[in-house]
Design a protein around this nucleic acid. Structure first.
Lengths: 161, 161
DNA sequence: ATCAATTAAGTTATAATATAACAGAATAGC
DNA sequence: GCTATTCTGTTATATTATAACTTAATTGAT
């Protein structure tokens, strides 16, 4: 699956379907339980390519008949993060679906300040650069938080209007 | 001033003095008011190279006779950030002194998960890498959050023991 | 199939971080 | 000195996240 976050006309239902299907398959393979509440949270997060806050998910959980106290959603989010199905965006206190959950990786995100659409980049190049700098200082990298804010192509075009 | 965060034996009083002196000079040049409460907050943040939370600063403000309600410290932090004198570490909800406040820049941090010492790197190389990836997607970068967690040289040595 | 062990979800309470809004004090520039 | 502006004090509250304990569901062994 490619990253369509900034492709305004894309068939987003396809993103959702594919993300859910892949999640089911991965959890089956890993013998992890993608329970109804976890699957719903994942589906809600995939409603868009915009990071969404934990508390914004609660009303939809309530509507679906689940308990809608914060621990419910935070537990689901914790599970989804462990499985690499969602990433947390620290600079926004929000969560976004991962388009490549099949293998663990660090996130590297482009976040539009205007429309909030968020695209996950290949973290490889940035990692290599960081690794080089870190090595010079004798620092052993374990985790990387790379969150870039700016204007996506669509919003740049609109700003010119 | 160089970045001594991971130099365990360094003369830290020197870091503090230099940071405060530079802050005074920069604010004078820019005609910004480094008021007592702002200077105290900066001094407190510079007590170490470890990011410190806003609420951890409040007791010391109280002891110095200032109001110690949250807005006081958040306002001081906001000012210090605007002047480039401190950076916020989004992944920790905490603040750290900037060793190079003389010109505006994006932060790029190595944060030790063990001792919490934090070193600010030159953001140049990572920026160049990000810029290249972003350009390919047509994304216009405005702000970068790069926070790397791992083990500093000292703590690597200690972990081997 | 039953039961014990484990894992997940419900529930209540509260911790940790951050900001809104307005009143009063200090400072700067005239 | 006066006025406009900026800064600080103060009260209240919003937002994000977790602790701790209870109940329910699932798994795996017998």
């Amino acid at each position: 699956m490619d990253n369509l976050a900034f492709e305004s006309g894309h068939d987003h239902q396809h993103c959702i379907d594919q993300a859910l299907q892949q999640a089911r398959q991965l959890c089956r393979e890993r013998q992890q339980r993608l329970t109804p509440v976890r699957e719903l949270v994942l589906k809600l997060i995939w409603q868009s390519h915009k990071p969404i806050g934990a508390y914004e998910l609660l009303p939809a959980l309530a509507q679906a008949g689940f308990n809608s106290a914060p621990p419910t959603v935070y537990r689901a989010l914790e599970f989804l993060q462990e499985q690499g199905l969602v990433h947390r965006i620290a600079s926004l206190n929000a969560f976004v679906g991962c388009p490549h959950p099949e293998q663990a990786h660090q996130g590297c995100f482009l976040i539009c300040r205007q429309c909030h659409s968020t695209s996950e980049l290949d973290a490889g190049p940035v990692h290599a650069t960081l690794e080089k700098s870190a090595r010079e200082m004798g620092f052993a990298i374990e985790q990387e938080t790379v969150e870039v804010t700016g204007l996506c192509p669509n919003c740049q075009a609109r700003e010119g209007e």
